[in-house]
């Protein structure tokens, strides 16, 4: 599998993703600088977490217009799998690959801790290693993770099974107490309409080795590698 990790000024999870991909795929991903619009042909594009452009204006707003992101948008539309994590999710909403927006956390605090997620869909290359309804544990680390979209958009995401993960209790219950940032309907991650793009606030790459406290995140990278090997 050939993967590319997009590196912007201020990305800080790019190397964690690199390690996770190397571990699951056995191959080295391309670390692609954002300013270079010539993105090689790859099977997977990851837009990693961090603070691209210092989160100026709005988180992800500047990076959404960087030269390579235009190409990422084109690839996403043509069906190439794209995974946006944390700041990567914010960037993908800012460039309209995914609907909605990530607003400042409702509690106005940077939230950095493990959260429980309920896996809502398993018919995607990212989530096919999980069971439907399974609770997994993955860390979040963000200041703007409060997912917002208008009611019609939220209803459509639900109706089309585009919600991939929701914040939940250890028992898998969806309630306000399990919601770390005020996200609408406890949404932690969503899929594009044609399901090749996943944006999520939690960091699977930070839970991809027993030394990090667990491997629930590794299952996602393993799933993508397996799915792309068959395809």
């Amino acid at each position: 599998m050939k993967a590319a990790v997009i590196v912007s000024p201020g990305s800080n999870c790019d190397r964690d993703v690199q390690v996770a991909i190397r571990q699951s795929a056995g191959t080295e991903p391309i670390m692609h600088w954002h300013g270079d619009p010539e993105l090689p042909n790859v099977d997977l594009i990851v837009v990693p977490g961090g603070f691209s452009y210092g989160d100026y204006l709005r988180a992800g707003a500047m990076a959404a217009h960087s030269p390579v992101i235009r190409e990422v948008v084109t690839r996403a539309e043509s069906g190439v799998p794209v995974l946006g994590i944390c700041n990567g999710f914010q960037i993908l909403t800012e460039c309209d690959v995914l609907p909605g927006v990530l607003m400042p956390n409702a509690g106005l605090k940077f939230v950095c801790r493990d959260v429980n997620l309920r896996v809502e869909v398993t018919d995607t290359i990212f989530t096919c290693n999980y069971r439907s309804g399974q609770t997994i544990r993955i860390p979040v680390a963000h200041n703007e993770g409060n997912y917002f979209a208008d009611k019609a958009t939220l209803d459509r995401l639900e109706g089309e099974n585009q919600i991939a993960f929701r914040y939940c209790t250890t028992d898998g219950e969806i309630n306000p107490h399990a919601n770390p940032n005020g996200a609408a309907r406890n949404i932690a991650g969503i899929l594009s309409k044609n399901r090749n793009v996943l944006g999520m606030m939690p960091h699977p790459e930070r839970m991809a080795d027993p030394a990090l406290g667990g491997t629930d995140g590794r299952l996602m990278f393993d799933a993508v590698v397996k799915a792309l090997a068959i395809a």
């Binding site: 217009h65 609907p99 607003m103 917002f148």
Partner: peptide, 9 residues
């Protein structure tokens, strides 16, 4: 439209 505002919100 392109950058300064996010017209979703």
């Amino acid at each position: 439209e392109k950058l300064l505002a996010n017209t979703v919100i």
